[in-house]
Computed example of a mutant assay.
Amino acid sequence: MNHRDDLLEGAKKCLVEKGYAHTTARDIAAASGAHLASIGYHYGSKDALMNAAVIAATSEWGDTVAEALDAVEAPDPQARLAALVDRMRASTPQERELLMASVQAYAEAQFSPELRSALGAAYQEAHREFAALLDPGSQDTPQGRALGAAAYAVFSGVILQELVDPDALPDTEALMAALRRLTGAP
């Protein structure tokens, strides 16, 4: 790994351990084993490096979701969504640090057009992937993109609740029954 990569890994570590707002350039330098001045040389600023770390963490979370999507095999869209939610809920304890780092991206995106743009692109891809899972071939249609966006909203909301208070969240079967009730689906 080179200094640039070391800095990025150090920033991701700080993001998880200290949070975006509480990480200093000195923290990153210490975590990466790099010189403080190398942050400016490689990234321009601590904020630019932290944004890169958030984007990298979000991308890693996206890879985790994509792997889970690829592994889901169920007969219909509702069963596929339930299987995906179950799979991700089961992996939350092992992925907690990565998930928490990704969650921080939402708050920081308000202050960074670059980060907001990167997250927007990641959302569009997630919507396509969810649509392809739930209704194969629909990912390039307006209805498919809406389906993917709705499924992603449910999925990310469940994950957020799982992070905050997993014991208060009903099991996936109960959640799916509630969604059917809300939407009037059979």
Rank of each mutant, 00 (worst) to 15 (best):
A53L: 09
G157F: 06
Y152H: 11
E73I: 08
S45V: 15
S117Y: 08
E129P: 08
A57T: 14
V72Q: 08
V85N: 04
V158M: 07
E125S: 11
Y123F: 12
Q78H: 10
A56S: 10
A71P: 08
S102F: 03
E114P: 11
E125Q: 11
L134S: 00
L119S: 02
A132N: 05
V85E: 01
Y106M: 14
P75V: 00
T92Q: 15
V72L: 08
S117V: 12
Y41I: 15
Q161C: 15
Q161N: 15
E95Q: 14
A37N: 13
F155C: 03
A118G: 04
V103D: 10
A83F: 00
V54W: 03
M88C: 03
A131T: 08
D76N: 09
G44M: 04
V72E: 05
F130A: 10
G148R: 00
D86N: 13
F111L: 12
A82I: 01
S102A: 11
E97W: 02
A132M: 08
A68G: 07
T92P: 07
Q94M: 11
P77M: 09
P75I: 02
L119N: 04
E114Y: 02
S117D: 13
A150M: 13
A74K: 01
A48F: 10
P93L: 01
V54D: 01
D63G: 14
H35W: 15
R96C: 09
E114R: 14
L49G: 09
L36V: 12
A57M: 06
A90G: 09
H127I: 02
M88E: 09
S138P: 01
A109P: 03
L133H: 00
V158A: 06
H42P: 11
H35S: 14
G40C: 07
P77N: 05
S156E: 10
S138M: 10
Q143C: 02
A57F: 00
A101I: 01
M50W: 06
A109D: 03
G44R: 08
A101L: 03
A132I: 05
Y106E: 15
A132R: 13
L69D: 11
F111T: 07
L160F: 13
L49S: 09
R89L: 01
L133W: 00
P75S: 05
